[in-house]
């Protein structure tokens, strides 16, 4: 009888502690999405068919997407995702594009007509300019996502390999 009572008391205590802990250490938002998002390269290029890195991270967390849909992340990105999500390492899906060195958009300022279409397309606000005035790319902010290429009516944007960090 006493043993049963003690046990019940202990159970209650443990339950209470767990409840306290869950309240005390509650994590806001979905921690898995944040972790996945931290691995993704944040180019916001939408090559994964999601409108940005975070939506892709959410899809991955929900198990709705494959881990090989991010070309800018490259093979190392796939490996990191595989490790985090406990999935098999698979080769990049070429349908979404191929991994390549980081690129940078350059606007041929002589050709630009100032239509502002690329400014609206840029996911990181890295293009400066105003209507009917020449536009230019802030090289430091450009993620090389290529989203500005399709809207340009005069094809004046070119992708060049970004010079990496110098040792």
């Amino acid at each position: 009888m006493i043993a049963a009572l003690c046990f019940a008391l202990l159970c209650a205590l443990a339950g209470f502690l767990l409840w306290m802990a869950s309240r005390r250490f509650a994590v806001k938002g979905n921690p898995l999405v944040d972790e996945i998002d931290a691995i993704l390269p944040q180019t916001q290029c939408a090559q994964c068919n999601y409108p940005g890195c975070r939506p892709y991270a959410e899809a991955l967390a929900n198990g709705e997407a494959e881990i090989n849909q991010c070309p800018p992340g490259g093979e190392s990105g796939v490996r990191a995702l595989a490790e985090l999500l406990g999935r098999e390492v698979i080769p990049l899906n070429v349908e979404h594009g191929e991994a390549k060195v980081p690129h940078l958009a350059i606007i041929d300022e002589a050709v630009c007509i100032g239509c502002t279409k690329c400014i609206q397309a840029c996911p990181v606000d890295a293009i400066l300019g105003a209507a009917k005035l020449m536009h230019t790319v802030i090289a430091d902010e450009c993620t090389g996502c290529e989203l500005c290429l399709p809207p340009c009516p005069v094809d004046c944007i070119e992708m060049v390999p970004a010079t990496g960090v110098q040792p």
């Binding site: 993704l40 944040q42 916001q44 890195c53 975070r54 990181v124 606000d125 902010e141 993620t143 960090v165």
Partner: peptide, 23 residues
């Protein structure tokens, strides 16, 4: 140099994320 490159990439990614979120 791999570490430097990685830090550089991470820094850029963080910056891109902030700008993307702001946008």
């Amino acid at each position: 140099s791999a570490l430097r490159l990685r830090q550089h990439t991470e820094l850029r990614a963080a910056k891109a994320k902030t700008r993307f979120d702001a946008r």
